[in-house]
Design a protein around this nucleic acid. Structure first.
Length: 152
DNA sequence: GCCAACGTTGGC
DNA sequence: GCCAACGTTGGC
């Protein structure tokens, strides 16, 4: 089992929104970065652990725990000209962008980015690397364990 | 709103 | 294949 951190802007979809969704499950549409797509398509398995991260907001940080709830499948918004996420170069025969379903398990206390940065055991987290902008990053088992402890 | 850092595009 | 220009991300 692998672990991941997935960023969401709470204005778009917060941990509360995800918990309020049917089956607490939401499609993770809108990823338009190849590395992040590849993590979903090639790396994720159903049941993988997910740190639900709030970004681009007054208090960025980890806001909840979730899990991967499906294999990767095409993100329909790429085919919709009216969508913000439309991609003219994508076709149904040759989709370019994939997504997974994510099931929210619980809301946690907000574990702020600044607090994560202050933990020596977490300094190698992909999230914390200089210039890192990826919306989906891997988390090691040791990092996952440390963060669970911080959330106790 | 600023800006550092990064990814993508497209001309050559 | 290089790389300049541009667009985006996301913390502050």
């Amino acid at each position: 089992m692998a672990y991941w951190l997935m960023k969401s802007e709470p204005d778009e979809m917060s941990i509360d929104d995800a918990l309020a969704a049917p089956k607490h499950t939401v499609p993770w549409f809108g990823v338009r970065n190849y590395q992040a797509r590849n993590f979903m398509r090639d790396g994720m398995r159903v049941g993988d652990g997910v740190l639900f991260y709030h970004s681009s907001c007054p208090q960025p940080g980890i806001a909840g725990i979730a899990e991967v709830a499906s294999a990767a499948y095409p993100d329909d918004t790429q085919f919709d000209p009216a969508s913000h996420y439309y991609d003219a170069k994508a076709t149904r025969e040759q989709p370019r962008w994939m997504m997974v379903d994510v099931k929210a398990l619980r809301k946690t206390r907000l574990l702020p980015l600044a607090e994560l940065r202050a933990v020596p055991e977490l300094e190698d987290m992909a999230l914390l690397q200089k210039g890192s902008r990826l919306s989906i990053t891997p988390v090691t088992p040791a990092q996952w364990k440390k963060i669970q402890a911080l959330l106790q």
